[in-house]
Amino acid sequence: MIHAAGLTKSFDTKGGETVHAVRGIDLDVPRGEAFGFLGPNGAGKSSTMRMIACVSPRTDGELSILGMDPNTQGIAIRDRLGVVPQQDNLDEELTVRENLYVYARYFGFSKTYCWAKADELLEFAQLTEKANAKVTALSGGMKRRLTIARSLVNDPELLLLDEPTTGLDPQARHVLWDRLFRLKQAGVTLVLTTHYMDEAEQLCDRLVVMDGGQIVAEGSPAQLIARYSTREVVELRFVPGTQHAAEPVASKLVDRLEVLPDRLLLYTQDGDDTLEQAHAAGIEPVASLVRRSTLEDVFLRLTGRSLVD
């Protein structure tokens, strides 16, 4: 579905500087896969997505979408793509149902087909009751569902979702995940960016972590956890500042230890055992917690804890 080699995107800013948003990435996404881009803000995820969506020409490298070159066949590729942009750009001058109808018309389908498709997708997005409402009257979650429904008017083979659930409440996120699962079951290839690790674990068969315009890790969620973290993590919580006293002792117990302002994180294969050893060594935290490693641990290890922007 997607093949990229040495894919690069640079922009010239007004000051004359060149920003290297994407610095030579290699990708191969097969049909039917749910593929994720993880990375902090400014990592180059959206720039990559825009190149895949054929709305941004590449600066260098190879890119082939559905076997075609975006530089010469952009319209033919976009014909078979669905795009969910980071920010909803629904048509506020139209009703909910008209939004779907008009968007389907953009693809050139007949009027009868477009109305039927609009009604079918209203049901899919659980918005049938809002069919004749103005878009401005919808909640954030409803708008997002409508945007996703809109991206399906042409029955895309490849669906691109840029941060599909950012800013939504947990209920709305779960409804959306359910819808995306269904599409995946129907054989649609999904490519999404997110910085929610639970979302990546829920939805993605495979993902890459991007940082500074490059891919820094690639694999399934489980593979990434195995490779870049340990099975479990022991969190020892202290009154801020006092954790440094326990640091020398704790560091002897595990291969990797992370010191946070109020906590020590001990990366280990067996959390309960490590916790017991910590108590035996005389460490007295205010509170302690044993948990499984998540993609979040991988993410923070790979991209650091400091704010990027």
């Binding site: 969506a53 709305v55 319209i75 033919a76 976009r78 014909d79 793509l81 795009v83 942009p85 920010q87 750009n89 629904l90 048509d91 506020e92 001058e93 968007y103 953009y106 693809f107 050139g108 042409n154």
Partner: peptide, 12 residues
């Protein structure tokens, strides 16, 4: 409104 962005994401 980014209406044209939406249009150009389709095959227009």
């Amino acid at each position: 409104a980014k209406t044209y962005d939406a249009m150009l994401a389709t095959s227009l």
